[in-house]
Design a binder for these strands. Sequence first.
DNA 1: AGGCCTTTGAAGGGG
DNA 2: CCCCTTCAAAGGCCT
Length: 377
Amino acid sequence: MPQLSSGGGDDLGANDEMISFKDEGEQEEKIQENAFTERDLADLKSSLVNESEINQSPSAAGRRGQQGEQRVFTDKHREHHDGVSKQQDGGMYKSPAYPGYPFLMLPDPYLPNSSVSPSSNKVSVVQQSHGMHPLTSLLPYSNDHFSPSPPHLPTDMSQKTGVHRQSQDISGYYSLPPGGVSQITPSMSWFPHSLMLGPSGVHPTGIPHPAIVPPTGKQEHEHYDRSMCMKPQVEVKREKEPKKPVIKKPLNAFMLYMKEMRAKVIAECTLKESAAINQILGRRWHALTREEQAKYYELARKERQLHMQLYPTWSARDNYEAGLSGVAGEKNKADWGKKKRRKREKQQDSNTDPGSPKKCRARFGLNQQTDWCGPCR
DNA sequence: AGGCCTTTGAAGGGG
DNA sequence: CCCCTTCAAAGGCCT
């Protein structure tokens, strides 16, 4: 757990990546991202096309309509920067320093809808229906945005403003299934919960936690849907079959960033396919300043810390077989085995491919990337 | 219905 | 220590 033992510098993680992006394309990327003009997407698209051509495997983005992607990219990143710098002054969790951070998420102050009319309407819609689950983004702050509370959530849950909440309250909000704690959505990031849990700190034994999901593999929305229009049979069945809850991995910095920015990107480029969106987000991630990334690394670090506190015995390894641990059927075991096999085969294929990045890296080393083939570079 | 795609980062295991 | 693999989120697409 290097992030825990190390200080701020290491918190930034992936230093090599950071360095490389700083060294290589910082200015270029900065210009791109700070401007966030249509060129950004156009560039991305072209690169995606190139990559897809090179790889002979059409990417999700390349495959499909890159129709309206570059429609509404405008210069709002500066606002982002400004907002961020202001927010950072306030301390980590006093204010929505991380607007998109799952639980602290507010209607994004530097969201394009504030300045860009074409997407203004979309954003709120998207935010609620996509990436940010209603509870995720709005619960702590407002019941206005999420008035119809789920039946199993007392209304005061959404009325409380986020911070002071006794653990008893929380456990009261979510009726815990006998098998464990799975009523809360994982993307309602559990980290801030811990801040609310207070010193009572009973979470290891029963605090509902978004990191815990039903072992069905399907999570949050579906689960909530079911909870809301709960069919007694289903519930009974679930109760009859107490399943080991799956504790999800804590989100890393990039994942946190993705959760925050996804809706924005969707609104801006009218894309919905996650694969394409994630490519954009990946680029934006690299274009972030070190300070901006640091926010997310710090958040991720705290997430991990809390996760460790909540689930000291949990190991990432546990979820390697999560698919079969919960549903615990022979079929699922078989499926999981198949899946792993497929992945392995795929990996082998890519390794046998002369253009495989790993191959070039292994052959020439990181210092001689000039010798790498195009795709590897 | 369920896997794939796509991204970065973390973690664990093997050599 | 380095490398590899898996998982985390997301949702449209594809089989």
